[in-house]
């Protein structure tokens, strides 16, 4: 059974509906899946999540969460989903414990009743349970917010940019927590602007300017990248980038960590490229074959 079904969903803002935030999006998420919506700020991720959590009415199309329509049966959905909005949503002047108890009561449950579900996460912040939420570090706030969103054992969990502005260590920890939750059978939809997090999802949807560019497993998405990518580096990376982009055999070149990812046109010749670059004065040249990443795919889809 599909846990989330989105069918031609659209949303516009403004007096004349001139700002199109979400444009006829369709995708499905299976039960127990960890599904990522990957896209930069302004792609429409938050509008999409708000429609799915019944906070916004779609202009067109329809969507169902766990079998309930997001417009007609919005009350049912509110009983069974968990939601963590991007803007931070805890009471800063309440303690860790008070926040958790409060959220438990509004969902008609108790912390004890579902403690097994949040235990792994909560034990990490339990030593600070009398501390005010406002005095917690970013990573800990995030753990508390996740605990609060889970306290009623939701069927589907929506996490809108949970890792934005969080450092690399806390991000890693957060994704490990999500993996654990998935094992408990909860369907998780998570949005993120970090492309490197895509690989941690079962399936992903790449989103840009209100549209889904592609949906699939990370492997399927990078598998659709047919061109060869070369990783190139030299002693002068900025000059190298200019040289690469000026070459006829190069489709596209852009920096990618230590190397410049260089998308080659068909029938290219590695030796010719090497000669060309050396001739341009690049030293300590390294050229190697590289596997495309989700970020490479995203950029290719964006530029199409």
């Amino acid at each position: 059974m599909q846990s989330v079904i989105v069918n031609n969903l659209s949303k516009s803002y403004g007096k004349k509906k001139e700002i199109k935030a979400v444009k006829e999006i369709s995708f499905e998420v299976s039960k127990g899946e960890l599904f990522g919506i990957i896209g930069p700020d302004g792609a429409g991720k938050t509008s999409l999540f708000r429609m799915l959590t019944t906070l916004l009415l779609p202009d067109a199309g329809n969507a169902a969460v766990d079998g309930s329509d997001v417009v007609k049966n919005y009350k049912d959905i509110r009983k069974k989903v968990g939601y963590m909005p991007g803007r931070f949503s805890l009471y800063q002047d309440l303690s860790v414990e008070e926040n958790l108890n409060f959220f438990a009561t509004i969902f008609n449950t108790t912390v004890q009743h579902n403690y097994d579900l949040i235990k792994d996460i909560y034990v990490q912040i339990e030593p600070f349970k009398t501390r005010k939420a406002g005095k917690l570090s970013g990573g800990m706030k995030q753990k508390l917010a996740l605990s609060c969103a889970l306290i009623h054992r939701p069927v589907v969990l929506f996490l809108d940019e949970p890792t934005t502005g969080v450092d690399a260590v806390s991000r890693k920890e957060f994704w490990e927590m999500l993996k654990h939750l998935k094992q408990q059978g909860i369907t998780i939809l998570v949005s993120t602007p970090y492309m490197d997090e895509a690989g941690l999802c079962d399936r992903i949807g790449l989103m840009q300017q209100g549209k889904i560019l592609s949906v699939g497993t990370p492997a399927e998405i990078t598998g659709a990248f047919k061109e060869t990518i070369l990783g190139v580096k030299s002693n002068n990376m900025y000059q190298l980038l200019k040289d690469l982009n000026a070459n006829d055999e190069v489709e596209d070149a852009y920096s990618f960590g230590e190397y410049h990812h260089t998308v080659m046109k068909p029938n290219f010749n590695k030796e010719t490229l090497q000669q060309y670059l050396e001739q341009k004065g690049n030293k300590e040249l390294v050229i190697q074959n590289t596997q495309p990443t989700v970020e490479d795919s995203f950029m290719q889809l964006m530029k199409q």
Partner: peptide, 13 residues
């Protein structure tokens, strides 16, 4: 403003 209303609305309350 702080976004808690969003969470409240997406709850059975």
């Amino acid at each position: 403003e702080i976004g808690t209303m969003e969470v409240m609305l997406v709850s059975p309350v």
